Simulated assay, not measured.
Amino acid sequence: MSESRIDIVFRLKAKVYRLISICDGLKEKHDQSLLRIAELEKALAAKEKEVRGLMNENEKLKLAKAFSSSDDSKEAKVQISKIVREIDKCIALLNK
Rank of each mutant, 00 (worst) to 15 (best):
37 I>N: 08
61 L>E: 11
19 L>E: 05
24 D>P: 01
37 I>M: 07
60 K>N: 11
74 K>R: 12
96 K>Q: 11
95 N>P: 01
75 E>K: 14
1 M>F: 09
40 L>W: 05
34 L>G: 06
51 V>F: 01
80 I>R: 04
75 E>I: 01
90 C>N: 09
53 G>P: 01
14 A>C: 01
78 V>Q: 11
51 V>K: 10
44 L>K: 15
22 I>D: 06
37 I>D: 10
80 I>H: 04
74 K>L: 13
47 K>Y: 06
41 E>G: 10
59 E>K: 15
45 A>Y: 00
6 I>A: 04
64 A>F: 11
65 K>P: 03
36 R>Q: 14
8 I>E: 06
27 K>Y: 06
3 E>H: 08
36 R>P: 00
18 R>Y: 05
86 E>I: 10
94 L>K: 15
44 L>C: 09
90 C>S: 15
47 K>H: 00
31 D>A: 13
31 D>K: 13
46 A>K: 14
3 E>G: 12
52 R>G: 02
85 R>M: 07
19 L>T: 07
89 K>V: 04
23 C>D: 08
50 E>A: 10
92 A>M: 03
31 D>S: 14
23 C>V: 02
89 K>P: 01
28 E>A: 08
76 A>T: 03
1 M>T: 09
82 K>N: 13
19 L>V: 08
57 E>R: 14
35 L>E: 10
58 N>E: 07
64 A>W: 05
17 Y>T: 04
77 K>Y: 00
27 K>R: 13
78 V>Y: 06
72 D>K: 15
13 K>P: 00
14 A>V: 02
1 M>A: 15
82 K>W: 03
54 L>V: 03
19 L>R: 11
64 A>C: 14
27 K>V: 06
29 K>C: 03
92 A>K: 13
56 N>Y: 07
54 L>T: 04
24 D>M: 02
64 A>K: 15
55 M>E: 10
80 I>V: 13
1 M>Y: 11
70 S>C: 04
31 D>W: 04
46 A>N: 11
4 S>W: 01
72 D>I: 05
1 M>V: 09
79 Q>V: 05
15 K>R: 12
78 V>G: 07
54 L>N: 13
83 I>H: 11
38 A>F: 05
81 S>L: 07
96 K>R: 13
40 L>Q: 11
75 E>S: 12
28 E>T: 06
64 A>P: 03
68 S>A: 15
16 V>P: 00
25 G>D: 06
89 K>A: 14
15 K>L: 07
53 G>Q: 12
83 I>V: 12
9 V>M: 00
25 G>H: 07
56 N>Q: 13
28 E>Y: 03
93 L>V: 00
41 E>Y: 05
41 E>N: 11
60 K>D: 06
33 S>L: 14
32 Q>W: 07
4 S>L: 11
12 L>V: 00
25 G>R: 10
47 K>M: 09
31 D>L: 05
93 L>Q: 10
1 M>R: 13
50 E>Q: 09
62 K>H: 07
17 Y>I: 08
